[in-house]
Structures are given as structure tokens and as C-alpha cells.
């Protein structure tokens, strides 16, 4: 690297002397500034968590929060729960996972085990493009397909289709990374035994990388569960419980929050907004923390 040669006129004469006061002061100032950046970055995290917990924790202690819906409860009334929204969020996340996990793992296997040449480059590029697609664009695409082209209703299955576009790249990336970590020796030992390649992948490579793949799935789920834009366009809110993804409106935590966010003057409604925010943040954070812990303690076993 030619980088080092461009260093400032090094004080060759005093190489072994202690640094001048000015240089030491600058060094200290820079260190303080960098540490300050870290504090600036931490401040919003703590502030947000504190806000949501202090304003939302009250309702989460009620057992009705976890068992009741908002059916028949107006913005002015206290009561009801978030069951309809929690279940809706989970149903949509589950459908999204069921569709995207096979596609994503298949793509990652293709890229790592088979992919060479122009087509593999194209697939890698398109995964990158998907990573950068704004959620509202994914939602508009599914709207154009599902509602204007097919003429179907806006239902939660369509929301899941839009979320698939957002989840696939996350899972592809992390699975790919894990598969590349699997030692070549393992594959070759298996080939040497006469095991066909597909069986080597299914029985040797995938199990070795299993925990890393699960981490990717959990991080992907955490991302899609917090998405609001596809719900606004494709999944109208309802205050009742609905478990059918192909018929009728289905609530979700983000739309539950969105529903009453303009009613900050109405305490009962706004308390529920913060409680729903806390519920959502809990689910998403638990998923992503678990995912990270899993990846830390269970990366590719050597």
C-alpha cells in the first residue's frame, strides 16, 4: 500500500522522543470527539426506549391487552387489547417466511454452490437491488399486480407478498455468508464417499450452517414485522380479529399504531398507541437480539 508513504513530514529527528504537546492535545481532542460521536449515537436509542417504555408499559400489565381486540371500543373509551393486531402481525410474518425462506435459501445455495458466470453475477446484482428497494415501492408493485392487474381485494396475503420482496434479500445475504464459511474439506470428504452433490448440500452443508441461516431468518422477520408502508397500501386496518389472510381486513401492530396517531388529544387512544408501540418494539427487539446471540454462539461449527 502506498498509503503510508504519504504520511506527514514525519519528525524523523525526534522519532523516539515523546510527542510534542500540540500533537498530544490534538490526539486527545480527536479521541474525545470520537467518543462523543458514540454518545450522540446512543442518546436517541436510550431516549426512544425510555419514551416507549414509560408511556406504554402501563397497559401491557393488563391481561386484556394480550387477550382482547379493539372491537366496539371507540377512541374515547378506555379498554380493549392488542390481540387482533398481534395475531395479524404474526400471521403475516409467518406467511412471509413460508414463501421467502425457500426462495432465499435456494438462491443462496445457487450462488455459493453452483453459481458461476454471467447469470450468477446477475442474481447477485438483483439481490443487491432488492436490498435497496424502498418498502413503499415493493407495496406499489404488489398493488399494481394484485389489485389493478388481477382485480383482487386488498387482503393481508398481498401484504405478505410485498414483504417477501423485503425479506428475501436479508435471508439470502446471511445464508450466503454462512454457506461460504462451511469448510471445503467437509464437502470433499462427502464427495469422496460417493455422496452426490445435492445430498452433500442437504445433509452436510446446510446442517453445518443451520444456526447462521436461522439468524438470517430472524433478522429478516424482525425487519418485515416493523414495516408499515405495505400495510398502508395493501392491508387496511380493522378493530376485530381476523385470521383469514385471503378475506377481509386484518389488523397489524403498525396499522393499530397508525390508526390513532392523530388522536394525541384523546388519552385513551393515545395510551393504546404507545402501548402498541412498546409491544411491537418488544417483539422486534427480542427477535433481533435472539438472532444475534444465536449467530454469536452458533456460527459454523468447526
Amino acid at each position: 500500500m502506498a498509503v503510508v508513504t504519504s504520511s506527514p513530514p514525519a519528525p524523523t529527528k525526534r522519532l523516539l522522543e515523546s510527542e510534542s504537546a500540540g500533537r498530544r492535545a490534538r490526539n486527545r481532542l480527536a479521541t474525545v470527539l470520537m467518543a462523543a460521536c458514540l454518545l450522540i449515537a446512543m442518546l436517541p436509542l436510550i431516549w426512544i426506549l425510555w419514551t416507549v417504555v414509560s408511556r406504554g408499559a402501563g397497559l401491557l400489565g393488563d391481561s386484556t391487552w394480550w387477550t382482547n381486540s379493539q372491537r366496539g371500543i371507540t377512541s374515547r373509551r378506555v379498554g380493549g387489547g392488542a390481540y387482533h393486531a398481534i395475531v395479524g402481525t404474526l400471521v403475516m410474518a409467518l406467511m412471509t417466511a413460508v414463501i421467502s425462506v425457500p426462495i432465499a435459501i435456494g438462491t443462496a445455495i445457487y450462488l455459493v454452490e453452483y453459481g458461476r458466470g454471467r447469470f450468477a453475477k446477475l442474481v447477485t446484482f438483483m439481490v443487491d437491488v432488492l436490498t435497496g428497494i424502498p418498502s413503499i415501492v415493493a407495496a406499489l408493485f404488489i398493488y399494481a399486480l394484485w389489485v389493478t392487474a388481477f382485480g383482487f381485494q386488498r387482503v393481508s396475503f398481498a401484504v405478505s407478498l410485498a414483504l417477501v420482496l423485503l425479506m428475501v434479500p436479508v435471508v439470502v445475504r446471511s445464508t450466503e455468508e454462512m454457506l461460504r464459511l462451511v469448510p471445503r474439506d467437509l464437502r470433499e470428504a462427502s464427495y469422496a464417499l460417493g455422496v452426490p452433490r445435492w445430498k452433500t448440500i442437504v445433509k452436510v452443508v446446510l446442517p453445518t450452517a443451520f444456526s447462521g441461516i436461522v439468524t438470517g431468518i430472524m433478522l429478516g422477520l424482525a425487519r418485515v414485522m416493523g414495516e408499515t408502508a405495505p400495510l398502508l397500501i395493501l392491508g387496511p386496518y380493522t378493530s376485530s380479529i381476523n385470521l383469514n389472510p385471503f378475506d377481509g381486513n386484518m389488523a397489524a401492530l403498525p396499522t393499530f399504531i397508525n390508526q390513532d396517531r392523530n388522536n394525541q388529544a384523546l388519552d385513551p387512544a393515545f395510551d393504546r398507541v404507545w402501548a402498541a408501540a412498546l409491544t411491537l418494539i418488544l417483539i422486534v427487539m427480542v427477535l433481533s437480539v435472539l438472532g444475534r446471540l444465536l449467530s454469536r454462539f452458533g456460527t459454523v461449527k468447526k
Binding site: 425457500p102 426462495i103 432465499a104 435459501i105 435456494g106 438462491t107 445455495i109 445457487y110 450462488l111 454452490e113 453452483y114 453459481g115 447469470f119 450468477a120 446477475l122 442474481v123 438483483m126 439481490v127 437491488v129 432488492l130 428497494i133 415501492v137 415493493a138 408493485f141 399494481a144 399486480l145 392487474a149 420482496l165 428475501v168 439470502v172 455422496v195 452426490p196 452433490r197 445435492w198 445430498k199 448440500i201 442437504v202
Partner: peptide, 29 residues
């Protein structure tokens, strides 16, 4: 295991192709 290999390779290549198709469809729609 030859046919298994072929099926598996087609399936994974197909998932890759699906990702490409999804992005192209997004722009096209």
C-alpha cells in the same frame, strides 16, 4: 443420484431466476 443432482440444481437456479424476475417485474409493472 444423478437425477437428484439435476433436479436440485434446477430448483436452486430457479430460485435465483425468481429473484431476477421479481425485480424486473417490479420495474415493468
Amino acid at each position: 443420484g444423478r437425477s437428484g443432482d439435476r433436479i436440485f440444481s434446477v430448483l436452486t437456479r430457479g430460485s435465483g431466476a425468481l429473484v431476477v424476475v421479481l425485480v424486473v417485474l417490479t420495474g415493468a409493472f
